[in-house]
Design a protein around this nucleic acid. Sequence first.
DNA 1: GCGACAG
DNA 2: ATCTTGTCGC
Length: 233
Amino acid sequence: MEKIEKMKQEFMALQNELLPLVKLENSFRKEEVQLIAGVDLAYWDAGGKAYGTCCIVVINYHTKEVIERVNSYGEIQVPYIPGFLAFRELPLVLEAVKKLSNEPDLYMFDGNGYLHARHMGIATHASLYLQKPTIGVAKSYLRIDEVDFQMPENAAGAYTDIVIHGEVYGRALRTTANVKPIFISCGDRIDLETSTAFVMDCINRESRLPIPVRLADLETHRARAYYMKKEEE
DNA sequence: GCGACAG
DNA sequence: ATCTTGTCGC
């Protein structure tokens, strides 16, 4: 499979090209944030082909009430390659975003943002197309250059910064006591402190994940069941 | 050959 | 991500 190496080279070139456009400062007034979107995908196989569905759930940040749900689905063309998740998932993400009738003020992605070897995780990559602030929310840690993360204290809100080559890439955040931490990083157009604050403000006792991402995750399972059944005529 | 590996 | 049983706990 020398073909994958060639893909990586092309993807890497685009990531390096996009990097200069990233801004780790707030491009918005956090007091005015009303709608937050959570984005996630689920996969399945059918007839030897890979399919996926992307779900976006928009909530009212203040009331946590669901405002809108949309989804897209189709064949997945790009394989999963650690470090290049955006190339696999973005097509369906952008397709789902087009269906939104509400315009989110902020997006939370299931995956990394700036916490990435070239600072181009899916949250960051997506923001450059969405032109909106994004936050990366990953459930597990993807090591970068042999650097491990330090386990934060066992208390809600405790965190440790993940510093690589002298730069803060993101942070391990314990959103709830007695559960594994999640990994937060800036997507783009927002700083890490603000990102962490919004994530913590979206935590309830249902999950260690922020509400928008959790709801999008649940929604992908329902959408998958629906599309799988629909496929068999 | 072996280990790592967001989703 | 997905495949999966039982099991511990509120």
